[in-house]
Amino acid sequence: MHEVVRSGPQAAAKPILPVSAERLFVRRKGRVLLDIEALTIGGRGTTVLVGPNGAGKSLLLNVLAGLRAPDSGRVLWNGEPPNRQRYCRFGMVLQRPVLLRRSVRANVEFALRAVGSSAEQARAQAHRALEAAGLLALANASARVLSGGEMQRLALTRALAAGPDLLFLDEPTSSLDPASMQTIEAMVRNASEDGMRIVLIAHDLAQARRLGDEIIFMHRGKIVEHAPTDRFFGAPATPEAQAFIAGKILI
């Protein structure tokens, strides 16, 4: 279904993986928001970040994406500090995706042009990406009048269109109806099968099971467990993870 298109200048860009974090620490108003000793994202597959609200999942993703600087510690993309202009084969869909005040097609083309595609390439790539995502009928509609599900789909399509090596997704299906959720999950699964490295935040544990090859469980800014999906759900090692899977409130 979804075909990862790797052509144009971005094809020659430097590989971003592995992405690693060392002794990340973020504190706001005396509260520790993030405290990560070490984390490396490499290889293949999909990693799902789970944990209660306020555990630091979004913050970790933002720091790894280079959008927020940690108070201390460092993030490395393939051994270098994050630099989105040098490592363009990276995509991310924010928790609340920001769509430009343009048409659906222009949103995708803009992202492709930003990573160096020519206008012609961008048009062709955008067309294929929209087709794959089932958004072709809406190509000329204003992006700002789409439904919630269509917006998420467009944001994901836009991130996928450039064919990134690494894709971050911050709760891509929150507040979507079941049909929209299925469409998004299918797109994620296809991308993963095509070899894209994916890190995804999920609130829905069933979704984590469906999509995740491995699970990172976070609590109070720390990574408490980092395990293959089966092991995490089958035999959680820590009392916090056990309580979380059992649906008990963690504070």
Binding site: N62, A65, G66, L67, R84, Q85, C88, G91, M92, L94, P97, V98, L100, F110, A111, A114, V115
Partner: peptide
Amino acid sequence: GEYRDQLMLFGLGSLARLRT
């Protein structure tokens, strides 16, 4: 405030972000 992160993710430099 609304666009900054997204425009950074597009990999735009500060001038290109401003233009957008």
